[in-house]
Amino acid sequence: MKVIPGPLPGLLLIEPKRHGDARGWFSESWNRARLADAGLTTHFVQDNESFSRHAGTVRGLHFQAPPHAQAKLVRAVAGAIRDVVVDIRRASPGFGQWAAFRLSAENGRQLFVPEGFLHGFVTETDATLVQYKCSAPYAAAAEGAVRFDDSRLGIDWGLPPGRAILSPRDAAATPWADFVTPF
């Protein structure tokens, strides 16, 4: 497994090794001991799956506030996503900055997102299945969201304006100017 530091403090891009032959390939997607050797010692307690029927589906930008904050390990099992994170840790040199990564079934990459980040993604293909591990269980009272297309964040989602498929909750998310970070 190759572990690559991301552009913001704490982000890690993980590239599991694939062993292939004429039948296809095999990959070890999670190994606690190997990742601990690389410095990733987060204890995951919940696995989630998200299926999106259509390309252009945006999920996010979401977070859970302390004491229910979540670190995540995200991967696309089918299809492809543009995975986006925003650092919302007040004391971080990356506060308010975003980064994006292409995660696909084809490239097998995974993104480790520590606590203190907004997280979201846009599907690049139809029939996209995303899996992610979380370090804390879901807690409805701790959830929050920031508007994905807020101009103050300036995130490049790779979508033409007005083409995002959103849930009502994400469409009504808090603007960045009104957001008060709990981190």
Results as ranks from 00 to 15, higher is better:
F95Y: 15
E115G: 09
A99Y: 00
G94M: 09
S104T: 05
E115C: 15
R89M: 14
D87G: 14
L103Q: 03
V85F: 04
Q97Y: 03
N107S: 13
P93L: 15
E106C: 14
R102K: 15
A100Q: 06
R90F: 05
G116S: 09
L118K: 11
G108N: 11
S104I: 05
Q97N: 11
P114S: 05
A100P: 02
L111V: 06
V86P: 03
S104M: 13
F101V: 12
A105N: 02
P93M: 15
L111H: 04
A100C: 14
V113N: 00
L111W: 04
I88W: 01
Q110M: 14
I88D: 00
A100L: 13
V85T: 02
R90A: 12
P114Y: 02
V84Y: 00
V84S: 03
E106H: 14
V84W: 00
P93A: 15
F101C: 14
S92L: 13
A91D: 11
F95P: 07
A99W: 01
R90H: 04
F117L: 10
D87A: 11
L118E: 03
R109Q: 10
G96P: 09
R90M: 07
R89V: 13
P114I: 04
L111R: 06
A91H: 11
S104L: 07
Q97V: 08
I88K: 02
V113S: 02
G108Y: 01
R109N: 04
P93T: 07
P114C: 14
V84P: 00
L103C: 06
V86A: 10
N107D: 11
V84T: 00
R89F: 10
A99D: 00
L118R: 07
A105I: 07
R89G: 11
G108L: 06
Q110N: 08
L103W: 08
L118F: 10
R90D: 02
R89A: 11
V85N: 06
V86T: 01
R109Y: 01
W98M: 13
V113C: 08
R102L: 15
R90N: 03
I88T: 01
D87M: 14
F101L: 13
E106I: 10
L118H: 03
F117N: 07
G108S: 08
F101P: 05
S92P: 05
R89S: 10
P93W: 11
A105P: 00
L103G: 05
G96N: 09
R89L: 15
R89Q: 14
F117W: 04
G96Y: 10
D87Y: 12
G96K: 13
V86F: 06
R109A: 15
F101T: 05
